[in-house]
């Protein structure tokens, strides 16, 4: 573990963090431990985000640092090496039909992934049938519906209804989030909960799969 690397990532010192990671790799440090450090740092950043001490740009830059360090680590992993991190659960996630907003969705998917979930990201403008199909195939515990506009209310409701019609509703918890969503809309769409941001989505999902 490199406390220095963790601190640099947490402090948003991108250039120094990437340089240090490179140096550590050249010195022969176990490549996977760098990813663990990044994950530790992202945990701290996530907590700060939840506490209102840092903001979306920090999450995005943290993701960017992880991407760069990940790209350096990858070629150095022995083939087949590196045990898979144990996943907390599976989540199907997407921006509902008619809505093409992806930024918030991408951040939520990223934070869910970092926090140990296996996420199937269906993208934006996702037709109702595609959600149903994904739930059948991927068997998630949680479905996340993202939407920015008031026009997303009905597609959200229709998506939940389609899960009911397919007999899948009881097998999943449904959370919604995005620009004009709130508890009122969650009730309207018959979702289980509204999450106000990426960390709320993590907390909700962890609660539903019984993880801490």
């Amino acid at each position: 573990m490199s406390q220095e690397l963790i601190d640099l990532v947490v402090d948003m010192r991108e250039e120094e963090a990437v340089k240090l990671a490179e140096k550590l790799l050249d010195e022969g440090v176990e490549p996977l431990s760098l990813l663990d450090d990044c994950r530790t740092a992202l945990g701290i950043i996530g907590d700060r985000f939840a506490a209102g001490e840092c903001f979306v740009p920090e999450l995005i830059l943290a993701g960017e640092m992880l991407r760069q360090i990940g790209a350096m680590v990858k070629p150095r992993l022995a083939a087949g090496g590196g045990e898979e991190q144990k996943k907390l659960g599976r989540i199907v996630f997407g921006t509902v039909e008619g809505d093409i907003h992806d930024i918030a969705k991408d951040i939520v998917v990223f934070m869910l992934d970092i926090n140990g979930f296996e996420v199937m990201d269906l993208g934006v403008d996702v037709p109702v049938a595609k959600f149903v199909e994904a739930v059948k195939e991927f068997k998630p515990q949680v479905v996340g519906l993202s939407g920015f506009l008031t026009l997303a209310y009905d597609p959200m409701k229709n998506t939940v209804q389609a899960l009911v019609d397919a007999g899948l509703r009881d097998s999943v918890k449904v959370m919604i989030g995005g620009g004009q969503m709130d508890d009122q809309v969650a009730a309207y769409a018959k979702a289980d909960a509204y999450g106000k941001d990426a960390m709320a989505a993590v907390t909700l999902s962890k609660g539903w799969v019984g993880a801490k």
Partner: peptide
């Protein structure tokens, strides 16, 4: 932007891309 019938469904408002 995408607008109704052009990148987003005909019954959806225009959206920034």
């Amino acid at each position: 932007y995408h607008w109704p019938g052009h990148g987003v469904p005909e019954n959806t408002s225009y959206q920034c891309a």
